[in-house]
Nucleic acid binder design. Sequence first.
DNA 1: ATATTTTGAATGAGTGTTCAGCAAATATGT
DNA 2: ACATATTTGCTGAACACTCATTCAAAATAT
Lengths: 232, 232
Amino acid sequence: MHLRLKKNSTAVRMKLTSAAQDATDTEKRGRKASKETRRQQLIEATIDSLAKRGYSETTLADVADGAGLSRGIVNFHFESKEKLLIATLQSMADEYAANWGAALEKAGDRAAAQLWALVACDFDRKICTKRKLAAWCAFWGEAKSRPTYQALCGARDVKYQEIFLALCQTLKDEGGYAYEPEGMTLALCASMEGLWLRLMMGDGLTREKAHAAAVEYLLVAFPRHFTREGPK
Amino acid sequence: MHLRLKKNSTAVRMKLTSAAQDATDTEKRGRKASKETRRQQLIEATIDSLAKRGYSETTLADVADGAGLSRGIVNFHFESKEKLLIATLQSMADEYAANWGAALEKAGDRAAAQLWALVACDFDRKICTKRKLAAWCAFWGEAKSRPTYQALCGARDVKYQEIFLALCQTLKDEGGYAYEPEGMTLALCASMEGLWLRLMMGDGLTREKAHAAAVEYLLVAFPRHFTREGPK
DNA sequence: ATATTTTGAATGAGTGTTCAGCAAATATGT
DNA sequence: ACATATTTGCTGAACACTCATTCAAAATAT
Protein backbone atom coordinates (compact mmCIF):
# COMPACT_ATOMS: atom_id res chain seq x y z
CA MET A 1 0.00 0.00 0.00
CA HIS A 2 2.65 2.38 1.03
CA LEU A 3 4.78 1.26 -1.84
CA ARG A 4 2.00 1.66 -4.38
CA LEU A 5 1.48 5.25 -3.40
CA LYS A 6 5.14 5.97 -3.76
CA LYS A 7 5.29 4.50 -7.22
CA ASN A 8 2.28 6.49 -8.27
CA SER A 9 3.67 9.78 -7.19
CA THR A 10 6.88 9.01 -8.94
CA ALA A 11 4.98 8.30 -12.14
CA VAL A 12 3.18 11.59 -11.94
CA ARG A 13 6.44 13.41 -11.50
CA MET A 14 7.95 11.74 -14.53
CA LYS A 15 5.05 12.98 -16.64
CA LEU A 16 5.30 16.54 -15.40
CA THR A 17 8.94 16.89 -16.21
CA SER A 18 9.46 18.23 -19.67
CA ALA A 19 12.27 20.49 -20.74
CA ALA A 20 13.99 20.08 -17.43
CA GLN A 21 14.74 16.43 -17.99
CA ASP A 22 15.61 16.59 -21.67
CA ALA A 23 19.03 17.70 -20.65
CA THR A 24 19.57 14.47 -18.81
CA ASP A 25 18.44 12.12 -21.53
CA THR A 26 21.88 10.81 -22.15
CA GLU A 27 22.49 10.34 -18.43
CA LYS A 28 21.08 7.81 -16.06
CA ARG A 29 17.79 8.68 -14.44
CA GLY A 30 16.35 8.35 -11.00
CA ARG A 31 18.73 7.57 -8.21
CA LYS A 32 21.60 7.08 -10.54
CA ALA A 33 21.69 10.60 -11.84
CA SER A 34 24.97 12.10 -10.84
CA LYS A 35 25.22 15.10 -8.60
CA GLU A 36 26.20 17.39 -11.44
CA THR A 37 23.40 16.10 -13.62
CA ARG A 38 20.85 16.76 -10.96
CA ARG A 39 22.15 20.24 -10.44
CA GLN A 40 21.82 20.95 -14.14
CA GLN A 41 18.31 19.55 -14.08
CA LEU A 42 17.36 21.91 -11.29
CA ILE A 43 18.95 24.82 -13.11
CA GLU A 44 16.88 24.04 -16.20
CA ALA A 45 13.76 23.92 -14.07
CA THR A 46 14.70 27.27 -12.60
CA ILE A 47 14.99 28.83 -16.04
CA ASP A 48 11.59 27.39 -16.88
CA SER A 49 10.07 28.91 -13.80
CA LEU A 50 11.72 32.28 -14.31
CA ALA A 51 10.38 32.36 -17.84
CA LYS A 52 6.89 31.25 -16.87
CA ARG A 53 6.30 33.07 -13.62
CA GLY A 54 8.98 35.75 -13.46
CA TYR A 55 11.58 36.31 -10.80
CA SER A 56 9.36 37.46 -8.00
CA GLU A 57 7.00 34.50 -8.28
CA THR A 58 9.56 31.78 -8.74
CA THR A 59 9.39 29.56 -5.68
CA LEU A 60 11.41 26.55 -4.71
CA ALA A 61 8.22 24.54 -4.87
CA ASP A 62 7.82 25.50 -8.53
CA VAL A 63 11.36 24.53 -9.31
CA ALA A 64 11.06 21.21 -7.52
CA ASP A 65 7.76 20.43 -9.23
CA GLY A 66 9.21 21.40 -12.59
CA ALA A 67 12.14 19.06 -12.07
CA GLY A 68 9.82 16.30 -10.90
CA LEU A 69 11.45 16.11 -7.49
CA SER A 70 10.47 16.76 -3.94
CA ARG A 71 10.31 19.97 -1.94
CA GLY A 72 13.51 19.84 -0.03
CA ILE A 73 15.64 19.00 -3.04
CA VAL A 74 17.05 22.41 -3.80
CA ASN A 75 18.43 22.91 -0.32
CA PHE A 76 20.06 19.53 -0.65
CA HIS A 77 21.89 20.16 -3.92
CA PHE A 78 22.33 23.89 -3.53
CA GLU A 79 22.58 25.46 -0.16
CA SER A 80 19.82 28.00 -0.58
CA LYS A 81 17.48 29.57 -3.07
CA GLU A 82 19.91 32.43 -3.55
CA LYS A 83 22.68 30.03 -4.51
CA LEU A 84 20.45 28.20 -6.95
CA LEU A 85 19.66 31.47 -8.68
CA ILE A 86 23.30 32.47 -8.84
CA ALA A 87 24.25 29.08 -10.24
CA THR A 88 21.50 29.46 -12.83
CA LEU A 89 22.74 32.85 -13.92
CA GLN A 90 26.31 31.59 -13.97
CA SER A 91 25.27 28.70 -16.17
CA MET A 92 23.58 31.02 -18.65
CA ALA A 93 26.56 33.38 -18.66
CA ASP A 94 28.92 30.49 -19.33
CA GLU A 95 26.80 29.26 -22.19
CA TYR A 96 26.63 32.72 -23.67
CA ALA A 97 30.37 33.23 -23.46
CA ALA A 98 31.07 29.80 -24.93
CA ASN A 99 28.74 30.61 -27.80
CA TRP A 100 30.42 33.80 -28.93
CA GLY A 101 33.81 32.30 -28.25
CA ALA A 102 33.08 29.44 -30.63
CA ALA A 103 31.58 31.78 -33.22
CA LEU A 104 34.73 33.87 -33.15
CA GLU A 105 36.88 30.77 -33.66
CA LYS A 106 34.97 29.67 -36.70
CA ALA A 107 34.95 33.11 -38.28
CA GLY A 108 38.55 33.09 -39.45
CA ASP A 109 40.80 36.08 -39.06
CA ARG A 110 39.24 38.79 -41.16
CA ALA A 111 37.77 41.47 -38.92
CA ALA A 112 34.63 41.90 -40.98
CA ALA A 113 33.85 38.20 -40.82
CA GLN A 114 34.44 38.17 -37.08
CA LEU A 115 32.12 41.09 -36.44
CA TRP A 116 29.48 39.52 -38.63
CA ALA A 117 29.76 36.26 -36.72
CA LEU A 118 29.63 38.01 -33.37
CA VAL A 119 26.42 39.77 -34.31
CA ALA A 120 24.88 36.68 -35.82
CA CYS A 121 25.60 34.40 -32.88
CA ASP A 122 23.60 36.61 -30.56
CA PHE A 123 20.53 35.56 -32.49
CA ASP A 124 21.40 31.89 -32.61
CA ARG A 125 18.67 29.30 -32.00
CA LYS A 126 20.44 27.88 -29.00
CA ILE A 127 20.96 31.15 -27.19
CA CYS A 128 18.10 33.26 -28.29
CA THR A 129 15.05 31.34 -27.14
CA LYS A 130 12.07 33.00 -25.52
CA ARG A 131 12.69 30.95 -22.46
CA LYS A 132 16.25 32.07 -21.95
CA LEU A 133 15.64 35.67 -22.92
CA ALA A 134 12.92 35.83 -20.31
CA ALA A 135 15.26 34.43 -17.71
CA TRP A 136 17.96 36.93 -18.61
CA CYS A 137 15.52 39.74 -18.33
CA ALA A 138 14.32 38.52 -14.96
CA PHE A 139 17.87 38.78 -13.68
CA TRP A 140 18.41 42.19 -15.29
CA GLY A 141 15.43 43.47 -13.36
CA GLU A 142 17.03 42.48 -10.08
CA ALA A 143 20.61 43.25 -11.01
CA LYS A 144 20.79 46.85 -9.88
CA SER A 145 20.17 45.95 -6.26
CA ARG A 146 22.35 42.81 -6.26
CA PRO A 147 26.04 43.14 -6.95
CA THR A 148 26.39 39.42 -7.61
CA TYR A 149 23.83 39.47 -10.38
CA GLN A 150 25.23 42.66 -11.75
CA ALA A 151 28.68 41.14 -12.09
CA LEU A 152 27.33 38.07 -13.85
CA CYS A 153 24.91 39.92 -16.08
CA GLY A 154 27.45 42.60 -16.83
CA ALA A 155 25.31 42.91 -19.91
CA ARG A 156 28.22 41.25 -21.64
CA ASP A 157 31.57 41.06 -20.02
CA VAL A 158 34.55 43.34 -20.47
CA LYS A 159 36.37 40.99 -22.80
CA TYR A 160 33.43 40.83 -25.17
CA GLN A 161 33.26 44.61 -25.16
CA GLU A 162 36.94 44.99 -25.92
CA ILE A 163 36.79 42.62 -28.85
CA PHE A 164 33.89 44.52 -30.27
CA LEU A 165 35.69 47.81 -29.90
CA ALA A 166 38.87 46.45 -31.47
CA LEU A 167 36.92 45.11 -34.45
CA CYS A 168 35.13 48.39 -35.01
CA GLN A 169 38.43 50.19 -34.78
CA THR A 170 40.01 47.89 -37.37
CA LEU A 171 37.12 48.25 -39.76
CA LYS A 172 37.23 52.00 -39.37
CA ASP A 173 40.87 52.05 -40.39
CA GLU A 174 40.30 49.65 -43.27
CA GLY A 175 37.30 51.50 -44.62
CA GLY A 176 38.24 55.06 -43.76
CA TYR A 177 34.99 55.66 -41.91
CA ALA A 178 34.56 58.89 -40.00
CA TYR A 179 32.79 57.90 -36.82
CA GLU A 180 34.01 57.90 -33.26
CA PRO A 181 34.59 54.17 -32.55
CA GLU A 182 33.71 54.07 -28.85
CA GLY A 183 30.32 55.64 -29.29
CA MET A 184 29.74 53.47 -32.32
CA THR A 185 30.57 50.27 -30.49
CA LEU A 186 28.46 51.24 -27.54
CA ALA A 187 25.48 51.99 -29.75
CA LEU A 188 25.90 48.70 -31.59
CA CYS A 189 26.11 46.58 -28.45
CA ALA A 190 23.22 48.47 -26.91
CA SER A 191 21.19 47.87 -30.01
CA MET A 192 21.60 44.12 -29.73
CA GLU A 193 20.66 44.17 -26.08
CA GLY A 194 17.63 46.29 -26.87
CA LEU A 195 16.63 43.83 -29.56
CA TRP A 196 16.82 41.04 -27.00
CA LEU A 197 14.62 43.04 -24.72
CA ARG A 198 12.04 43.46 -27.44
CA LEU A 199 12.20 39.82 -28.41
CA MET A 200 11.47 38.97 -24.83
CA MET A 201 8.54 41.34 -24.64
CA GLY A 202 6.78 39.50 -27.42
CA ASP A 203 5.46 42.05 -29.90
CA GLY A 204 5.50 39.65 -32.82
CA LEU A 205 9.18 40.33 -33.29
CA THR A 206 11.03 37.24 -34.47
CA ARG A 207 14.64 36.23 -34.12
CA GLU A 208 15.07 36.66 -37.86
CA LYS A 209 13.66 40.18 -37.92
CA ALA A 210 15.78 41.19 -34.96
CA HIS A 211 18.87 39.82 -36.65
CA ALA A 212 17.95 41.66 -39.84
CA ALA A 213 17.69 44.90 -37.90
CA ALA A 214 21.13 44.40 -36.41
CA VAL A 215 22.47 43.65 -39.88
CA GLU A 216 20.87 46.84 -41.17
CA TYR A 217 22.92 48.66 -38.60
CA LEU A 218 26.10 46.95 -39.75
CA LEU A 219 25.34 47.89 -43.36
CA VAL A 220 24.87 51.52 -42.49
CA ALA A 221 27.90 51.70 -40.25
CA PHE A 222 30.31 49.73 -42.43
CA PRO A 223 29.01 50.05 -46.00
CA ARG A 224 32.31 49.06 -47.53
CA HIS A 225 32.50 45.83 -45.59
CA PHE A 226 29.07 44.24 -45.64
CA THR A 227 26.13 43.36 -47.79
CA ARG A 228 22.85 42.05 -46.45
CA GLU A 229 24.13 38.58 -47.20
CA GLY A 230 27.36 38.81 -45.28
CA PRO A 231 30.85 40.30 -45.21
CA LYS A 232 32.28 41.26 -48.57
CA MET B 1 3.88 59.49 27.66
CA HIS B 2 1.86 57.94 24.93
CA LEU B 3 1.59 61.24 23.17
CA ARG B 4 5.30 61.88 23.46
CA LEU B 5 6.02 58.63 21.71
CA LYS B 6 3.62 59.46 18.93
CA LYS B 7 5.21 62.82 18.31
CA ASN B 8 8.60 61.23 18.24
CA SER B 9 7.70 58.68 15.67
CA THR B 10 6.18 61.37 13.50
CA ALA B 11 9.37 63.37 13.72
CA VAL B 12 11.41 60.39 12.67
CA ARG B 13 9.17 59.84 9.73
CA MET B 14 9.54 63.42 8.59
CA LYS B 15 13.28 63.02 8.62
CA LEU B 16 13.27 59.79 6.69
CA THR B 17 11.18 61.13 3.87
CA SER B 18 13.35 62.54 1.14
CA ALA B 19 12.55 62.42 -2.52
CA ALA B 20 9.10 61.13 -1.85
CA GLN B 21 7.92 64.32 -0.24
CA ASP B 22 9.67 66.76 -2.53
CA ALA B 23 6.82 66.34 -4.92
CA THR B 24 4.40 67.65 -2.34
CA ASP B 25 6.38 70.72 -1.36
CA THR B 26 3.94 73.04 -2.95
CA GLU B 27 1.00 71.23 -1.38
CA LYS B 28 -0.16 71.18 2.19
CA ARG B 29 1.42 68.57 4.36
CA GLY B 30 0.19 66.15 6.97
CA ARG B 31 -3.49 65.54 7.18
CA LYS B 32 -4.30 68.27 4.73
CA ALA B 33 -2.69 66.62 1.80
CA SER B 34 -5.31 65.93 -0.82
CA LYS B 35 -6.12 62.45 -1.97
CA GLU B 36 -4.32 62.88 -5.26
CA THR B 37 -1.27 64.33 -3.58
CA ARG B 38 -1.01 61.45 -1.20
CA ARG B 39 -1.31 59.00 -4.04
CA GLN B 40 1.52 60.72 -5.86
CA GLN B 41 3.59 60.70 -2.70
CA LEU B 42 3.13 56.96 -2.35
CA ILE B 43 3.99 56.44 -6.00
CA GLU B 44 7.24 58.34 -5.54
CA ALA B 45 8.06 56.23 -2.51
CA THR B 46 7.36 53.14 -4.60
CA ILE B 47 9.81 54.24 -7.27
CA ASP B 48 12.38 54.84 -4.54
CA SER B 49 11.89 51.38 -3.17
CA LEU B 50 11.99 49.72 -6.58
CA ALA B 51 15.26 51.50 -7.29
CA LYS B 52 16.80 50.69 -3.94
CA ARG B 53 15.61 47.16 -3.26
CA GLY B 54 14.36 45.90 -6.60
CA TYR B 55 10.95 44.54 -7.48
CA SER B 56 11.03 41.33 -5.54
CA GLU B 57 12.05 42.99 -2.29
CA THR B 58 9.78 45.97 -2.45
CA THR B 59 7.29 45.66 0.38
CA LEU B 60 4.39 47.83 1.41
CA ALA B 61 6.21 48.46 4.66
CA ASP B 62 9.14 49.92 2.71
CA VAL B 63 6.84 52.13 0.71
CA ALA B 64 4.97 53.34 3.78
CA ASP B 65 8.20 54.05 5.64
CA GLY B 66 9.63 55.84 2.63
CA ALA B 67 6.57 58.04 2.44
CA GLY B 68 6.71 58.65 6.18
CA LEU B 69 3.30 57.13 6.75
CA SER B 70 1.92 54.14 8.52
CA ARG B 71 1.56 50.54 7.44
CA GLY B 72 -2.04 50.36 6.40
CA ILE B 73 -1.92 53.47 4.26
CA VAL B 74 -1.41 51.89 0.86
CA ASN B 75 -4.45 49.71 1.14
CA PHE B 76 -6.46 52.80 1.92
CA HIS B 77 -5.37 54.92 -1.04
CA PHE B 78 -4.82 52.08 -3.44
CA GLU B 79 -6.75 48.89 -3.11
CA SER B 80 -3.82 46.54 -3.11
CA LYS B 81 -0.09 46.31 -3.69
CA GLU B 82 -0.72 45.21 -7.25
CA LYS B 83 -2.76 48.34 -7.95
CA LEU B 84 -0.12 50.56 -6.41
CA LEU B 85 2.48 49.05 -8.72
CA ILE B 86 0.30 49.45 -11.76
CA ALA B 87 -0.43 53.07 -10.85
CA THR B 88 3.30 53.63 -10.45
CA LEU B 89 4.08 52.20 -13.85
CA GLN B 90 1.21 54.15 -15.39
CA SER B 91 2.56 57.33 -13.85
CA MET B 92 6.01 56.73 -15.30
CA ALA B 93 4.57 55.87 -18.69
CA ASP B 94 2.50 59.07 -18.68
CA GLU B 95 5.50 61.15 -17.79
CA TYR B 96 7.56 59.52 -20.50
CA ALA B 97 4.89 60.09 -23.13
CA ALA B 98 4.38 63.70 -22.05
CA ASN B 99 8.11 64.23 -22.32
CA TRP B 100 8.53 63.13 -25.89
CA GLY B 101 5.25 64.75 -26.83
CA ALA B 102 6.52 68.10 -25.59
CA ALA B 103 9.90 67.61 -27.23
CA LEU B 104 8.21 66.95 -30.54
CA GLU B 105 6.14 70.12 -30.20
CA LYS B 106 9.15 72.28 -29.59
CA ALA B 107 11.15 70.79 -32.42
CA GLY B 108 9.34 72.57 -35.22
CA ASP B 109 8.29 70.79 -38.40
CA ARG B 110 11.52 69.69 -40.01
CA ALA B 111 11.86 65.92 -39.79
CA ALA B 112 15.56 66.01 -38.94
CA ALA B 113 14.98 68.39 -36.03
CA GLN B 114 12.13 66.23 -34.78
CA LEU B 115 14.20 63.05 -34.85
CA TRP B 116 17.06 64.81 -33.11
CA ALA B 117 14.71 66.06 -30.39
CA LEU B 118 13.14 62.65 -29.96
CA VAL B 119 16.51 61.05 -29.42
CA ALA B 120 17.73 63.80 -27.13
CA CYS B 121 14.68 63.83 -24.89
CA ASP B 122 15.24 60.19 -23.98
CA PHE B 123 18.37 61.29 -22.17
CA ASP B 124 16.81 64.27 -20.49
CA ARG B 125 17.64 65.00 -16.84
CA LYS B 126 14.02 64.64 -15.77
CA ILE B 127 13.41 61.29 -17.39
CA CYS B 128 16.75 59.62 -17.36
CA THR B 129 17.63 59.42 -13.68
CA LYS B 130 19.18 56.34 -12.13
CA ARG B 131 16.18 56.08 -9.88
CA LYS B 132 13.64 55.97 -12.67
CA LEU B 133 15.71 53.79 -14.97
CA ALA B 134 16.01 51.27 -12.17
CA ALA B 135 12.27 51.32 -11.67
CA TRP B 136 11.65 50.84 -15.39
CA CYS B 137 14.00 47.92 -15.44
CA ALA B 138 12.32 46.35 -12.44
CA PHE B 139 9.05 46.37 -14.35
CA TRP B 140 10.66 45.05 -17.52
CA GLY B 141 11.87 42.08 -15.57
CA GLU B 142 8.35 41.18 -14.55
CA ALA B 143 6.63 42.21 -17.75
CA LYS B 144 6.79 38.93 -19.62
CA SER B 145 4.63 37.15 -17.08
CA ARG B 146 2.21 40.04 -16.51
CA PRO B 147 0.14 41.28 -19.41
CA THR B 148 -0.74 44.49 -17.59
CA TYR B 149 2.88 45.47 -17.17
CA GLN B 150 3.66 44.41 -20.69
CA ALA B 151 1.00 46.69 -22.08
CA LEU B 152 2.23 49.66 -20.05
CA CYS B 153 5.92 49.05 -20.62
CA GLY B 154 5.39 48.25 -24.24
CA ALA B 155 8.96 49.51 -24.32
CA ARG B 156 7.55 52.56 -26.00
CA ASP B 157 4.01 52.57 -27.32
CA VAL B 158 2.84 52.05 -30.87
CA LYS B 159 2.35 55.73 -31.57
CA TYR B 160 5.92 56.50 -30.63
CA GLN B 161 7.10 53.71 -32.87
CA GLU B 162 5.07 54.97 -35.81
CA ILE B 163 6.42 58.48 -35.49
CA PHE B 164 9.94 57.16 -35.44
CA LEU B 165 9.34 55.06 -38.51
CA ALA B 166 7.71 57.95 -40.38
CA LEU B 167 10.63 60.23 -39.58
CA CYS B 168 13.19 57.70 -40.74
CA GLN B 169 11.19 57.20 -43.91
CA THR B 170 11.09 60.92 -44.59
CA LEU B 171 14.80 61.35 -44.00
CA LYS B 172 15.52 58.44 -46.27
CA ASP B 173 13.58 60.07 -49.09
CA GLU B 174 15.18 63.44 -48.48
CA GLY B 175 18.70 62.11 -48.30
CA GLY B 176 18.49 59.25 -50.75
CA TYR B 177 19.76 56.74 -48.25
CA ALA B 178 19.78 53.08 -49.15
CA TYR B 179 18.70 51.29 -46.00
CA GLU B 180 15.56 49.40 -45.22
CA PRO B 181 13.64 51.80 -42.98
CA GLU B 182 11.85 49.31 -40.73
CA GLY B 183 15.00 47.51 -39.72
CA MET B 184 16.73 50.83 -39.31
CA THR B 185 14.05 52.22 -37.02
CA LEU B 186 13.95 49.06 -34.98
CA ALA B 187 17.70 49.08 -34.51
CA LEU B 188 17.66 52.73 -33.51
CA CYS B 189 14.88 52.34 -30.96
CA ALA B 190 16.48 49.19 -29.61
CA SER B 191 19.77 50.99 -29.27
CA MET B 192 18.23 53.65 -27.07
CA GLU B 193 16.58 51.05 -24.90
CA GLY B 194 19.84 49.17 -24.63
CA LEU B 195 21.58 52.37 -23.59
CA TRP B 196 19.00 52.82 -20.86
CA LEU B 197 19.68 49.31 -19.71
CA ARG B 198 23.38 49.99 -19.50
CA LEU B 199 22.88 53.28 -17.73
CA MET B 200 20.85 51.45 -15.15
CA MET B 201 23.47 48.77 -14.69
CA GLY B 202 26.03 51.32 -13.59
CA ASP B 203 29.27 50.66 -15.47
CA GLY B 204 30.41 54.26 -15.23
CA LEU B 205 28.31 55.12 -18.24
CA THR B 206 26.88 58.62 -18.00
CA ARG B 207 23.81 60.18 -19.52
CA GLU B 208 26.03 62.33 -21.70
CA LYS B 209 28.05 59.42 -23.04
CA ALA B 210 24.92 57.44 -23.75
CA HIS B 211 23.42 60.35 -25.61
CA ALA B 212 26.65 60.77 -27.55
CA ALA B 213 26.49 57.12 -28.59
CA ALA B 214 22.94 57.54 -29.85
CA VAL B 215 24.02 60.64 -31.75
CA GLU B 216 26.88 58.69 -33.30
CA TYR B 217 24.27 56.33 -34.62
CA LEU B 218 22.27 59.19 -36.10
CA LEU B 219 25.40 60.56 -37.78
CA VAL B 220 26.19 57.26 -39.37
CA ALA B 221 22.66 56.57 -40.47
CA PHE B 222 21.77 60.03 -41.72
CA PRO B 223 25.08 61.67 -42.64
CA ARG B 224 23.46 64.30 -44.83
CA HIS B 225 21.14 65.46 -42.06
CA PHE B 226 23.18 65.67 -38.88
CA THR B 227 26.41 66.85 -37.36
CA ARG B 228 27.51 66.03 -33.85
CA GLU B 229 26.11 69.40 -32.81
CA GLY B 230 22.64 68.91 -34.19
CA PRO B 231 20.52 68.74 -37.34
CA LYS B 232 21.96 70.60 -40.32
C1' DA C 1 -21.68 65.91 15.17
C1' DT C 2 -20.25 63.63 11.07
C1' DA C 3 -17.15 62.31 7.62
C1' DT C 4 -12.65 61.50 6.23
C1' DT C 5 -8.08 60.05 6.81
C1' DT C 6 -4.63 57.63 9.39
C1' DT C 7 -2.85 54.40 12.59
C1' DG C 8 -0.95 50.00 14.12
C1' DA C 9 -1.97 45.59 15.99
C1' DA C 10 -3.89 41.22 14.52
C1' DT C 11 -4.52 37.83 10.96
C1' DG C 12 -3.50 34.33 7.86
C1' DA C 13 -1.60 32.74 3.65
C1' DG C 14 2.66 31.64 1.51
C1' DT C 15 7.52 30.36 1.44
C1' DG C 16 12.49 29.17 2.52
C1' DT C 17 14.82 26.16 5.48
C1' DT C 18 15.62 22.23 8.50
C1' DC C 19 15.95 17.55 9.55
C1' DA C 20 14.67 12.82 10.98
C1' DG C 21 13.85 9.05 8.42
C1' DC C 22 13.49 6.07 4.16
C1' DA C 23 15.27 3.54 0.33
C1' DA C 24 18.53 2.60 -3.45
C1' DA C 25 23.25 1.80 -4.37
C1' DT C 26 27.52 0.30 -2.90
C1' DA C 27 30.92 -1.81 0.10
C1' DT C 28 32.13 -5.33 3.23
C1' DG C 29 32.06 -9.64 5.34
C1' DT C 30 31.07 -14.66 5.16
C1' DA D 1 26.60 -16.14 -4.13
C1' DC D 2 24.37 -14.21 -0.16
C1' DA D 3 23.69 -11.45 3.83
C1' DT D 4 24.76 -7.38 6.31
C1' DA D 5 26.45 -2.73 7.00
C1' DT D 6 27.40 1.78 5.27
C1' DT D 7 26.94 5.49 2.24
C1' DT D 8 24.37 8.52 -0.56
C1' DG D 9 20.38 10.72 -2.51
C1' DC D 10 16.04 11.98 -1.56
C1' DT D 11 11.53 12.89 0.83
C1' DG D 12 7.95 15.56 3.03
C1' DA D 13 6.21 17.22 7.31
C1' DA D 14 7.25 20.70 10.73
C1' DC D 15 8.99 25.21 11.68
C1' DA D 16 9.95 30.01 11.64
C1' DC D 17 9.40 33.96 9.35
C1' DT D 18 7.84 37.57 6.10
C1' DC D 19 4.41 40.24 4.33
C1' DA D 20 -0.18 41.83 2.25
C1' DT D 21 -4.45 42.70 4.04
C1' DT D 22 -8.07 43.82 7.45
C1' DC D 23 -10.24 46.54 10.77
C1' DA D 24 -11.40 48.81 15.07
C1' DA D 25 -10.01 52.74 17.18
C1' DA D 26 -7.93 57.37 17.06
C1' DA D 27 -6.90 61.73 14.98
C1' DT D 28 -8.22 65.31 12.13
C1' DA D 29 -11.06 67.98 9.08
C1' DT D 30 -15.65 69.94 7.72
